[in-house]
Amino acid sequence: MFTTYDLFNNVNNMRHVLNNFFNENYTRRTADYPYVNLYEKDDNIEIAVLAPGEKVENIDLQLIDNSLRIEIDKKADYKDSPYIRKERAFGKFRKSVMLPYRVDPDKIEATMKNGILKIKLVKAEDAKPKKIEIH
């Protein structure tokens, strides 16, 4: 079938774009790195990483100087069947998070729940401010 260019098609497209601008639905973009949030309160840092379905043994956390390296090896769970949709991303993800101050390497806690990895860090004793006495 032949189709002719119709200006109103484009106008309709434009309307679609505008309608979707305020639409409340959106999809998380697939990125080459895991999404990370960093929270800080007093002397505690909490990092939340979006890692759905990740096995603990495939997550590698390393404290290098004052940054935390998060490496996730997300293995594809594809079955040997025809796929109708493939939207999820797999592969090796790596991200370094710069910490606002040095942390105590012995007080790092990492837990995984419902696909969210949470890492709790505490400020290092020697990074805390010290009062200097004047004699």
């Binding site: 998380r28 979006l50 759905p52 069947s81 999820r88 696909g115 969210i116």
Partner: peptide, 20 residues
């Protein structure tokens, strides 16, 4: 985001829903 596959007996949907 989802993956959907089909085999002889069923359709299987895998959806990423962290935080639920």
């Amino acid at each position: 985001s989802v993956d959907i596959y089909e085999n002889e007996n069923e359709f299987v949907i895998t959806a990423e829903m962290p935080g639920v």
